[in-house]
Design a protein around this nucleic acid. Structure first.
Lengths: 230, 230
DNA sequence: TTGCAGTAAAAAGTATAACCATATTTCTTT
DNA sequence: AAAGAAATATGGTTATACTTTTTACTGCAA
């Protein structure tokens, strides 16, 4: 026994995934949909509410509802919700990220092109220029690792990695603000990574990323000791 | 400018995570909540609708809404939604799973106890008994890998791995139904894995899991060639 | 006392209608 | 032609009534 709004959600989803309602397309108004499906506007509103939470549509008051690409960050939100109920620590999260990064590096070495290297070098240089701007530095760090993930040519890696990083971005931010010198070591790691990848030296690249994660682990420890993060 | 139901969602979420509304607790009725928050029932319904989609509560018509643990499978659903929009293939998914499995094995070898081994052996034996029941075999395979993930003592691993496996379960199921002999090799891998872990032989365990994934990769290829899966 | 049927109460699900706030469009005025 | 004002469309909210499902109670019969 399914409810009316659930049926409508299913129908709209199928219309979205079959491109009858392509990305960017405006949905009919709530009143219009109510007529089409022969239900009350209430039911339509609940269906739209569900689709919005799932990130499939975006609603603007006074304008309408539009089909959107679901944002990768929804994964981070979902994982965070679940983590709360499974006694998960930041260290657990970082452990999984480390595995992910290693897996990424292996595949980057298999598939990266010289253009990928150029992109990484560019981000590296941008970070050099931003050693005084903590916010910008953290942002570029996310970009660096995401670009690395993109070099695998497996679209799942950037999606997952950015989600994981999102959950620990405040650590990087707080620590860099506390000890700006930490940026130097991070940059050394980044440069070593690019070079190791260019040379196809998997072992070196992996040991570098492990060191990089180890630093983050210590940063978490320090911030916890000083009660800056929970 | 936030809407009313969004505010209520935030408030209810905080009450859930702070255990003012513990798991299993029945929420006040919609009318009751409408009175408490001084809004209409519609607004409450939309808020409840959101919480339900996020897996924080469960609603039963005629009974009420109850606080529930968010189910790990929500991650699979979220990832699946996003995959659809990023041209992700089953092979991409499997590649990420392989990295996850390797990461799991490394940590299992660090932390597994003899009880963990016993559990794995038990599932292995159950699978031996179920060589004729494809459904049961697939179910136990999921259990085996999830138990392996649990042996890491990092709660994130079983959550993520079961999500990933969930998305490829139909592959295992269809292929085993097509070629039941494939169960023999899978079991060989499982046994080899347990033994390698017991002996702390990381390299052997990892190469075994890679072979295990390689088989799955070939199964996907065959099923795609025969148009059994997309 | 036990067991069952019927009924009433409670709660979620659905339907209408009306009103508000905002964004877009159209039309008038300059 | 540009600026401004009015009309229109849309989502957000409120209120009320009716429906369906579940649960609890009550009273009768074995």
């Amino acid at each position: 026994m399914s409810s009316l709004h659930a049926d409508i959600v299913i129908d709209l989803k199928s219309k979205i995934s079959s491109n009858i309602l392509p990305e960017g397309q405006k949905l009919p108004s709530e009143r219009e949909l109510a007529l089409q499906y022969e239900v009350s506007r209430n039911v339509i509103r609940e269906a739209i509410s569900v689709l919005r939470v799932e990130g499939l549509i975006m609603v603007q008051a006074g304008k309408g509802a539009y089909v959107t690409k679901p944002n990768p960050m929804m994964i981070a939100e979902t994982i965070e919700r679940i983590m709360k109920n499974y006694n998960t620590t930041l260290e657990d999260l970082l452990e999984v990220r480390e595995g992910l990064e290693i897996s990424i590096i292996k595949n980057v070495i298999k598939r990266a092109t010289s253009e990928d290297s150029q992109i990484l070098y560019k981000i590296y240089r941008d970070m050099e220029k931003n050693r005084t701007n903590v916010t910008q530095f953290a942002k570029l760090d996310l970009q660096f690792h995401t670009s690395l993930a993109e070099s695998t040519k497996n679209p799942l890696y950037p999606v997952l990695l950015s989600s994981f990083m999102e959950m620990t971005q405040h650590v990087l931010f707080e620590f860099t603000r506390l000890i700006p010198e930490s940026m130097v070591q991070a940059q050394e790691h980044h440069l070593a990574l690019i070079k190791a990848i260019e040379e196809g030296d998997e072992d070196l690249a992996i040991s570098t990323i492990i060191s990089h994660m180890q630093v983050l682990r210590e940063e978490i420890k320090v911030l916890k000791e000083r009660n800056i993060i929970g």
